Amino acid sequence: MEKNYPYPQRNSSVKWVDTEWLKGHLNDDMAILDVQPNIHDYIVEHLPGAAHLDQEFLRSSLGGLPGQFMPPEAVAPYFNRVGVTMDRPVLVYSCKGPSKGWGDGLEQTMMAYGLTRSGHDKALILDGGLEKWKANGGQTTQQFPRIKEGDFRGREMKEFYVGYDEFKRTKDDDNVLLLDARPAAVYEGKGAWPKAGHIPGAISLPWASLMSKDNPRELKPDGEIQEIIGKVEATPDRSIICSCGTGREATNEFNLFKWYLGYPDVRIYEGSFTEWSSYPDNPTVTGPDPRGPEQQVVQQR
């Protein structure tokens, strides 16, 4: 289906643009954020006018629990230094990285979520990232832009996420669909966490399954996306909770369901498996079944 960009056309705080749209709008009045995961990648090549901003400033430890999202007043100075204002669009893009090669495809959705979580409502994601831009003849530069400091103020969009107490109380409600965006092997078995498996009731929907096999920054065609989410019964009438390991992979599916597809009730469990598994009494389940033959309690080591 032919799309008119920015997509979707309806009112949406996050929209996607393609490389052809960007070629005609690169000089528009907007902030451009290069969110490649290493500064050397940015130095090697970036979009004209783009300022580099590392996604890691969006989170920090809180009470000893790692990877907790920072409030708007903490992230505002960073956004201001790269020219973000409340009234201008902000284009975010990434790349695997020509120098370090650390990019995994989530930098774009992570930064878009960080912007909108802090109250910005004009984020643009470059579908396919810098790889597709270059493949379609787009030019890059090594020149650093002159950026005027922004006036980003922000406000916390608490309706975008669910905290631990509410999550534990509501995750098993009949109308709730809890998704786990981690790779299937981690969902079923052992990852980096002291406990193995997944949160009881969580449905496996690996975020990478929704993206192009050759480019994890590019969404699959709409028909394929609908087929994939149909298999997990992710319908607009359900309350969707997106989770993963630390809340980062879940930003991909939060943006997809809330902004791209326009589902009315979508939130992130930001604490995700890291927070859930930090409580010794919380059960986890191994294997492909959301609840397993029997819920298995894995003790904290």
Rank of each mutant, 00 (worst) to 15 (best):
W193D: 15
D54L: 08
P264E: 00
G138D: 12
S272M: 10
P264I: 00
G150V: 13
L179E: 08
N27R: 03
W16N: 00
D173S: 09
D289K: 08
R81I: 04
W259M: 08
G201K: 00
T251M: 06
S60D: 14
D265L: 11
R291W: 06
G189T: 03
A50T: 06
Y78D: 09
L62E: 12
P66W: 12
S278T: 02
A192E: 12
Y5R: 04
T19N: 10
S94Y: 06
R146Q: 15
N80S: 02
E45Q: 09
V186N: 03
D121I: 01
G49M: 03
E270S: 12
T141H: 06
L47G: 08
F273V: 03
M211V: 03
A31H: 00
S99F: 15
D54N: 14
P8I: 02
W276D: 07
P236L: 00
H25F: 12
D29Y: 00
T19Y: 08
L91C: 15
R117N: 12
A50P: 07
E249S: 12
K213T: 13
S60L: 13
Q226W: 10
V14E: 09
K122F: 01
G287H: 03
L261S: 06
D18F: 13
R301H: 01
E218K: 15
I240K: 07
G230P: 13
A208H: 04
V82D: 05
F152H: 01
E56W: 01
H46I: 02
L124A: 12
P6T: 09
